[in-house]
């Protein structure tokens, strides 16, 4: 595996507050890492350290093998950054915004213009190319901002809450663009408060809260391992509830009663067949017997409320 981003034990304090206590990351080249966490979890601090805007107090980070503290210029050669607020110049047109960055990065006027028009076309902004950015909608501004971060043809891009404040339509468009960049081989680290976003875009998710990693894995493993599936049994006869509960506890080791349902969070879905067999042996008829996968939302709440893996 080729790592595009690696971080070990990143820590950062701002005065009295510890923004990060210890964060480790490893992002494989060409993949998307979703850095998930509530407001104030430290997501932006991680991005700013990786993008060379902030020095960590402790720990090390490498982007394409370059140390972000020792050789920030080498890191800047390969990264693109879009912050939480679209960093476009409102009074300039779309094409001028991109032309400006192309020229700043040392390209010829013709080359810069070509790149600008190409990016605007790819991001559905051709029609608005010659309008000042202040006339753009929120979604268009975000797309222009993303285009701006791609002018230098970065191999790693950092997207800090790229879709915050966008309507679902604009958000879907932006997601599609991000997927397109990944198909071109770009590595993406995106921060988000939205599980759906992480679930839809990310190959791997790192959940952080209070400045440290509380869980990581693919969306599937997080759902499976951290939030365990729930077995639900509803006996046909409500009077059998207590017997069912006792039986479930015997097999799985726990139960909760919710109305006419007996619920238990299972470690192993094989428990399901054991429960079925035992219910059958006991002669209890059931109206419903199911396994429900947890939603990523439940996982996220569990992780960030308790602050520790369940």
């Amino acid at each position: 595996m080729t790592s595009a981003i690696q971080a070990h034990g990143l820590a950062k304090r701002f005065g009295e507050t510890a923004a990060l206590t210890s964060v480790d990351l490893d992002v494989e080249a060409g993949t998307v890492l979703g850095l998930l966490g509530p407001n104030g979890a430290g997501k932006t601090t991680v991005v700013r350290i990786l993008a060379t805007l902030l020095r960590p107090d402790a720990g090390q980070a490498f982007v394409h093998g370059h140390d972000v503290v020792r050789s920030p210029d080498r890191v800047r050669e390969v990264i693109g950054l879009t912050g939480q607020f679209a960093a476009v110049d409102d009074s300039l047109t779309g094409v001028e915004n991109l032309l400006f960055l192309g020229r700043l990065l040392g390209r010829s006027r013709a080359d810069s213009r070509g790149t600008a028009l190409n990016l605007l076309g790819r991001f559905g902004l051709s029609d608005a190319a010659d309008r000042p950015a202040k006339t753009y909608s929120g979604g268009m501004r975000r797309r222009l901002d993303l285009a701006a971060c791609l002018v230098g043809e970065p191999q790693v891009i950092f997207l800090d809450e790229p879709t915050t404040g966008l309507d679902p339509n604009a958000r879907d468009q932006l997601w599609e663009i991000i997927r397109g960049e990944v198909r071109r081989g770009v590595t993406v680290l995106l921060t988000t408060q939205y599980l759906e976003e992480a679930d839809r875009l990310a190959d791997d998710i790192v959940v952080i809260d209070h400045g440290s990693v509380v869980a990581q894995g693919t969306p599937q493993t997080l759902k499976r391992e951290v939030g365990r599936p729930t077995l639900q049994v509803r006996p046909l006869d409500g009077a059998e509830l207590a017997r069912v509960a006792a039986l479930v506890t015997e097999v799985i080791g726990e139960h909760t009663i919710d109305g006419r349902l007996v619920k238990a969070r299972v470690r192993d879905t094989a428990a399901l067949s054991t429960v079925v067999r035992r219910l059958d042996e006991a002669g209890i008829e059931v109206a419903e017997l199911s396994i429900r996968e947890p939603s990523l939302d439940e996982v996220f709440k569990q992780l960030t409320v308790t602050g520790a893996p369940v």
Partner: peptide, 13 residues
């Protein structure tokens, strides 16, 4: 305030 300087500082310039 607009974040333009963050972008400048993340560029190899």
């Amino acid at each position: 305030a607009k974040g333009l300087f963050d972008r400048f500082r993340s560029l190899p310039i």
